[in-house]
Simulated assay, not measured.
Amino acid sequence: MLQNIGMPGLIIILVIALIIFGPSKLPEIGRAFGSTLREFKKSTRDLVGEDIEKKEKEIK
């Protein structure tokens, strides 16, 4: 779905976000989104790593 947005769509979304939240809140929202994304990636890596370890133990 996000692959079809393109650059003009992203610019429109950013302008709307700027209007709604204001320029002072956007950095805070960006940091919160970034930390949430990092935690999600870390959790995903941990889960995948656990699955790989379980499969290796089953093979042995």
Rank of each mutant, 00 (worst) to 15 (best):
G49S: 04
I20P: 04
L37F: 13
I59L: 15
E39W: 07
T44M: 15
E56W: 08
K60C: 07
G30W: 00
V48C: 05
S43V: 12
P8W: 05
I13L: 13
T36A: 15
G9Y: 05
K57H: 06
K55E: 11
E28K: 14
F40S: 05
S24H: 07
T36N: 14
N4V: 13
L2F: 14
E28Y: 10
L2Y: 12
A32E: 08
M1D: 08
I11F: 07
A17Q: 02
I59E: 11
I11P: 01
P8H: 02
K42M: 08
L47Y: 09
S24G: 10
M1C: 13
M7R: 06
M7Y: 14
I59S: 10
R45I: 13
M1G: 13
T36I: 09
K60V: 10
E50H: 10
S24F: 13
K57A: 14
N4Q: 14
I52E: 02
I5K: 01
I59C: 09
P8V: 01
G30Y: 01
K42P: 03
L18W: 13
R45L: 12
M7P: 07
K60L: 13
K54I: 06
E56M: 12
G6Y: 02
G22D: 00
E39Y: 03
F40W: 06
R45W: 09
S43H: 12
D46W: 07
L47Q: 10
L14K: 02
K54D: 06
G9I: 01
I20V: 15
S35N: 15
G49F: 04
G49D: 03
K60A: 14
I19P: 05
G30Q: 00
K60P: 10
I20R: 03
I59G: 05
I12R: 14
R31W: 07
I11C: 06
K60N: 13
I52R: 02
D46N: 11
I59R: 14
K42I: 08
G34N: 07
E56F: 10
E50V: 08
S43P: 03
G49Q: 04
V15C: 09
G34V: 01
E58W: 08
M7S: 09
L10I: 11
I12L: 09
G49H: 00
I20G: 05
P8A: 00
I52W: 04
E28C: 01
P23V: 12
G9C: 01
R45F: 15
F33L: 11
L37C: 05
G22F: 00
I20K: 04
F40Y: 07
M7D: 14
S35I: 14
D46T: 11
K57Q: 12
G9H: 08
A17N: 03
R31V: 08
K55C: 11
G6I: 01
V48E: 06
K41I: 14
E53F: 12
I19R: 07
G22V: 03
L10E: 08
R38G: 03
I5T: 06
V48F: 04
K42W: 05
V48N: 05
E28A: 13
G34E: 02
K54R: 14
V15F: 12
R31E: 04
G22W: 03
K25Q: 11
S35D: 12
S35P: 07
E50T: 07
L18N: 15
A17T: 01
G30F: 00
E53I: 09
F33P: 06
S35T: 12
G49P: 00
E28M: 09
I16G: 03
E53L: 10
R31N: 11
D51K: 07
